[in-house]
Design a protein around this nucleic acid. Structure first.
Length: 872
RNA sequence: GGGUGCGUAGCUCAGUUGGUUCAGAGCAUCUGGUUUACACCCAGAAGGUCAGGGGUUCGAAUCCCUUCGCACCCA
């Protein structure tokens, strides 16, 4: 075996081995199912740090479940990402000098599919290099035929239930992508802007009224001036009319206490078509609505001589015109927040348009109850419950339509000059319905399907159901077997628009929760605390990382500092640590493997004892690890395994049983250490699947039914507490010996003698271990202090190591005095507690007993130290 | 502006019901060590006003109030 582990070869080899033998594959059987559905990454996406973290956690959970004997099923897939994909295709067309509108819808969709097949889904292959044990035969895509059908069916159903309606609403319009965005797809950014003060003439009076606005170009759409009814400055203007400058239109002065008297001039221009609040006031006062923009945010005919020009150009030009005409009073610097499209970065234009909405209130209730009342669904960490609650209690209707082509086309068919519509799966069905509804003699030609598609989330909210075809065939065998799923692993940033909605869909369509536990990972940030993103360019290349540190190493590195829900400041050093751990495990095996076995030699006492100790230690750690897993404390589970293997197994156990250089090992010890090592591999497998499988097969040749990935999780053995206590006492003794060796420059290879006053009556079996680990030639039990020695104490036991040459009595005295000082101070604080009547009366018995024990221990130890001091 | 969360060692973070082992872990640092499985190593050490202030309690990193700082979500 070589000195260092070579992961590259092993990782490729074992992933293929797992694939070939179908270990990832799941078919329903008599075992209990353990299902995880992947949060479908964007089909256009490539693997980044967030995916790596998220999918590593899922793989850990699914591999552990597999070892625990569940029928583990991890369903992979991607979503079609309407906006992102369409943007890519549009960009590609643009590069070819074409526009989307040069193509028919069908032609465009062909291009999009072409694009998807060529570039899409790469991320799934990338997940394989991470070791993801998904059942790849189940890979789903939100535009697969059955998935498509599920979405359409759901739309029709919700429409028939009256939950989907059509509304003329203010939406976030992305003028570049020419589509509506959800609130979640808009990023607000602070921008340096200007506040323009503009005068409007009052009709019939020789007076002007001044308004402040950040958007003078919207003046073309003004339909009122609003004042606060309590504002005495403007009382005389009630019922008057104002003249819109340049345009010359006459608009009413209205009153509404929405207006903040303090802000700006206390006067507001109302542009209902282009501002949400203005729309609200407009509705209240029955104002006219004038839309001044085209779809690309150039001005339309209402913009008069600016028709066809961009909104920002018009802002400048129109301001100049106002200035020249004497309407502009002043301009002030002003910081405000501007909404930008997450995808195109274009400034969002609030726009009124026809959209489809889903009523959320009734759907939200069961979702709220499931998490907060019945606790059917658990959130890890639970701190997100507040956020979840807040959002669902203040939920707004969901705008589910998008002005795009790539996606599920809304199954609404218009007729009668678009004045009426019916909702149906096919045009034929729609025709039937339309005829019934209208009584008209229509043909298919009279029907026009809605151009828009549904929000991508409207397909992914069905994901846990639809991947098992549970919408189309609610009683199919697979769906009944795998659903509800077990865990969902995702980021808190999509708690609302994905997780909560899946829960709603779950209860609406299956009467069941879609999953039991939600594990929310943190965001991956760089060392500076910035979120890792493509746009910042601070995300390391995922595949390069794997190449450099091995998949196992990267998995460990990511998990080491990723407590659930807490952001993870990513540092490559963590991957190095992960890789180093792999190397450690490899070398542990290399050592064991190098031993020559001799069945004639007796098992040494220290080996027997140490093996028994590790068995108990393992059982104890296993319990701890299980506890961490049960609370989704994955990084703690890993750290517990890490310490067990590195510290307890390698640093203690192997060092104890290691035969002298080039000496053989007894067969009994050898066979037991192999068993124990195999158990280590089992608990490490979920975290580091590759190296563990590799070593598992190096231990001995195994057939395909004996692979580690499908072996059994170690079962709990009894923990011998006395053994653990005795060992930890002994390790303290060994530590002290090492300290003294270091202080006195006694190299480890030089044996020394040790004498002990065994006041604690410790188990003498451990002497063999102390002797081996301390390189003690002679261990003697004595009754009193030995001259010319240096001493140390563990509890009330006193140990003496003879030293050549003069003993520094002063130094020894100083050391003892310091110990005494500390102990007396400690005793004093314990005494103080115990003499406090209120403590003794109020504290639980157990706590008081502990304090009494501390007192007794301290007193005994003080006696020992005092005696030593006297004898000096 | 409204909401939520956070502040513990140089760094990243645990600390579960207020009570033992409560002030911890890993990394980094420092000291010593290598013909020996691993320098991707071994052994050891140092490092803290638990953000500041106040309160409740026999007892507070933990509960309450407040100030400061940070992050996220919503408008």
């Amino acid at each position: 075996m070589s000195t260092a582990y070579n992961p590259k070869e092993a990782e490729k080899k074992w992933y293929n081995y797992w694939l070939e033998n179908g270990y990832f594959k799941s078919v329903p059987d008599e075992r209990e199912a353990y299902t995880i559905v992947i949060p479908p990454p964007n089909v256009t996406g490539i693997l980044h740090m967030g995916h790596m973290l998220n999918n590593t956690i899922q793989d850990v959970l699914i591999r552990k479940a597999r070892l625990n004997g569940y029928n583990a099923c991890w369903v992979p897939g991607t979503d079609h990402a309407s906006i992102a994909t369409e943007a890519k295709v549009v960009a590609k067309l643009k590069a070819e000098g074409k526009s989307k509108y040069d193509l028919s819808r069908e032609e465009f969709l062909d291009k999009a599919w072409e694009w998807t097949h060529e570039y899409g889904g790469k991320i799934l292959t990338q997940l394989q290099s991470l070791g993801a044990s998904c059942d790849w035969d189940r890979t789903k895509f939100t535009l697969d035929e059955d998935m498509y059908e599920s979405v359409i069916k759901t739309f029709i159903d919700l429409h028939n239930k009256g939950l989907i309606y059509r509304g003329y609403r203010m939406v976030n319009w992305d003028p570049e992508a020419k589509t509506t965005l959800s609130d979640e797809e808009v990023i607000y950014q602070e921008k340096q802007a200007k506040l323009y003060y503009i005068n409007y003439k009052i009709e019939g009076l020789d007076e002007q009224i001044c308004i402040a606005t950040t958007r003078p170009e919207t003046i073309f759409g003004d339909t009122a001036i609003c004042i606060n009814p309590n504002d005495e400055r403007f009382t005389h203007l009630k019922g008057k009319k104002a003249i819109v400058p340049i345009i010359g239109r006459s608009i009413p002065v209205i009153e509404d206490d929405y207006v903040d008297i303090e802000f700006g001039t206390g006067c507001l221009k109302i542009t209902p078509a282009h501002d949400e609040n203005d729309k609200m006031i407009g509705d209240k006062h029955h104002l006219e609505v004038i839309d001044i923009f085209n779809d690309d945010a150039t001005l339309n005919k209402h913009g008069l001589h600016y028709e066809g020009q961009d909104r920002f150009k018009v802002r400048t030009a129109f301001t100049n015109e106002l200035k020249e005409a004497g309407h502009l009073q002043k301009v002030e610097a002003y910081t405000n927040k501007v909404g930008l499209s997450e995808r195109t970065k274009a400034v969002i234009e609030p726009k009124l348009s026809d959209q489809w909405f889903l009523k959320m209130k009734d759907l939200a209730k069961p979702a709220l109850d499931a998490v907060l009342k019945s606790r059917d669904i658990k959130l890890f960490p639970s701190k997100f419950e507040n956020t979840y609650k807040h959002w669902l209690e203040n939920v707004r209707d969901w705008n589910i339509s998008r002005q795009l082509w790539w996606g599920h086309q809304i199954p609404a068919f218009y007729y009668n000059d678009k004045k009426d519509y019916v909702v149906a799966k096919t045009k034929a069905e729609a025709l039937k319905l339309a005829k019934q509804k209208s009584g008209l003699d229509l043909t298919e030609k009279d029907l026009v399907q809605d151009e828009d598609v549904l929000d991508t989330w409207f397909s992914s909210w069905l994901w846990p159901i639809s991947v098992f075809n549970g919408i189309n065939e609610p009683n199919n065998k697979e769906f009944n077997y795998y659903y509800p799923t077990k865990d969902l692993v995702t980021g808190p940033d999509i708690l609302f628009f994905w997780v909560a909605r899946m829960i709603m869909a779950g209860y609406e369509y299956t009467d069941k929760k879609p999953f039991e536990n939600i594990y929310l990972t943190g965001l991956v940030r760089d060392k500076k605390g910035q979120k890792m993103s493509k746009s910042l360019g601070n995300s390391p290349d995922a595949l390069k990382l794997i190449d450099q540190y091995s998949a196992d190493g990267v998995r460990v590195g990511l998990l080491l500092s990723s407590a659930a829900g807490n952001d993870l400041l990513f540092d490559e050093a963590l991957c190095q640590q992960g890789k180093g751990f792999g190397n450690k495990i490899y070398n542990a095996f290399k050592l064991i493997n190098s031993w020559e076995i001799n069945s004639d030699i007796q098992q040494p006492e220290h080996s027997k004892l140490a093996l028994n100790w590790y068995t108990s230690k393992f059982a104890e750690s296993l319990q701890l690890i299980e506890d961490h897993f049960s609370k989704y404390r994955i990084s703690d589970a890993l750290m517990a395994s890490y310490k067990l293997v590195w510290d307890d197994f390698c640093s203690w156990l192997l060092e104890i049983i290691k035969p002298a250089y080039q000496q053989p090992i007894d067969a009994k010890t050898y066979h037991r250490i192999i068993e124990l090592f195999e158990n280590n591999l089992k608990i490490l497998h979920p975290f580091m699947p590759f190296i563990t499988e590799e070593l598992w097969h190096q231990i001995k040749k195994r057939n395909k039914n004996e692979a580690l990935i499908v072996s059994d999780w170690p079962s709990a053995e009894t923990i011998d507490q006395d053994l653990l206590k005795g060992f930890s006492f002994s390790s303290e003794v060994i530590s002290n010996i090492r300290n003294i060796r270091k202080q006195k420059n006694i190299a480890f290879k030089n044996p020394i003698n040790l004498s002990v006053i065994n006041s604690e009556q410790t188990d003498q079996r451990f002497d063999s271990i102390i002797s081996k680990m301390g390189n003690i030639e002679q261990l003697t039990y004595v009754d009193s202090k030995i001259e010319n020695t240096i001493s140390f104490r563990v509890k009330t036991n006193e140990y003496f190591i003879p030293i050549q040459g003069a003993i520094d009595v002063e130094a020894e005295r100083k050391k003892l005095s310091e110990e005494l000082n500390y102990l007396e101070g400690f005793l004093k604080s314990v005494d103080k507690k115990l003499s406090n009547k209120r403590f003794v009366d109020n504290a639980p018995e157990k706590v008081v007993a502990i304090e009494q024990q501390k007192k007794a221990d301290a007193e005994a130890k003080i006696e020992t130290v005092k005696k030593s001091l006297e004898s000096l």
